[in-house]
């Protein structure tokens, strides 16, 4: 049981030029096999053109209790969103 293959998180960039997106996890003995396994497990339907794998133990994550401090400040910065600005229709597309 101690010999379980490590857990890897899999990120895939799809056909449409979007960023890599987390698609799931799998087990593999090393990074090379993790990429191959990811290809076999997570791109069975042509889902991707590029694969990243990260050993799950190496991911640093924010803690949920910090959710407020981390994310709420940006809620108040509504000016970062284009819909904040009222542009007259006459100006045309912007």
């Amino acid at each position: 049981m101690s010999n379980e293959w490590p857990l890897w998180e899999v990120f895939i960039r799809g056909q449409h030029g979007m960023s890599h997106r987390h698609v799931g996890s799998l087990h593999a003995p090393d990074a090379e096999m993790a990429i191959k396994n990811a290809r076999d497990v997570y791109t069975r339907r042509n889902e991707g053109v590029s694969i990243w794998v990260v050993e799950a133990a190496n991911i640093a994550a924010s803690s949920p209790s910090e959710k407020g401090p981390l994310y709420e400040p940006s809620n108040s910065k509504v000016y970062r969103h284009p819909t904040f600005f009222n542009i007259p229709d006459d100006v045309g597309a912007m």
Binding site: L26, H27, A28, K36, N37, D40, V41
Partner: peptide, 11 residues
């Protein structure tokens, strides 16, 4: 021997 290999062999 392991699910990942099962899937790979099927491919």
């Amino acid at each position: 021997p392991v699910i990942e290999e099962d899937i790979a062999l099927a491919n």
